[in-house]
């Protein structure tokens, strides 16, 4: 059973994670990951059937930075706001300095001329490690429930 302090620390990491995406602070998003991290956005049906394809697959913090550059500089998209709600955080194991945690998430999307809609709902299956005293994600898998994506995924989940 993780200590209360560790639980609060983990919750802080998730809160910071959501804030980077929701507050358009994308450049800070990769800093929450280790340098050799693995980040994936995976439809539930691929996950359930052990099919390896992910919609986003970043195999390093550098790839996360390239994703940010793509959002900032290269991708053509209609402006939108996103809002992440992360809850039901569970710490499933803690071995050799690697914490396995999972959480439910919901991402809401608001386009300029439309009501807010539920954009993507699923769970985070994560591994966390401590580097220089800070907890970071060494692995994050975002497994989303509805395999049908409403048009495009611009911002990371």
């Amino acid at each position: 059973m993780a200590s209360i302090e560790l639980r609060l620390e983990i919750e802080d990491l998730y809160t910071a994670y959501a804030a980077t995406l929701d507050d358009d602070d994308l450049d800070a998003w990769p800093d929450l990951f280790t340098e050799d991290c693995l980040y994936q956005v995976i439809p539930r049906d691929n996950f359930d059937r052990d099919l390896p394809l992910a919609l986003i697959r970043c195999e390093s913090r550098a790839m996360l930075r390239d994703r940010v550059t793509a959002v900032r500089e290269t991708t053509m998209f209609e402006p939108r706001y996103v809002r992440h709600l992360i809850s039901n955080i569970r710490v499933s194991s803690e071995t050799d300095g690697v914490i396995e945690a999972q959480a439910n998430y919901a991402v809401f999307e608001t386009m300029t001329d439309a009501y807010t809609r539920v954009f993507n709902v699923g769970r985070y299956l994560d591994k966390l490690v401590r580097e220089d005293g800070r907890l970071l994600f060494s692995e994050k898998r975002c497994v989303y429930d509805s395999v049908l994506v409403p048009n495009s995924i611009i911002y990371p989940i």
């Binding site: 956005v41 390896p52 394809l53 992910a54 919609l55 986003i56 697959r57 970043c58 195999e59 994703r67 793509a70 290269t74 991708t75 053509m76 998209f77 209609e78 994506v149 048009n151 495009s152 995924i153 611009i154």
Partner: peptide, 27 residues
Amino acid sequence: TRRRLRQANLMGPAGLVSVDDSEVLKV
């Protein structure tokens, strides 16, 4: 296989290339 999975970042609903198209089709 890993190469194919990495290059898949270009395509699909979150693709670094394909997103331009799905967005442009909407407008």
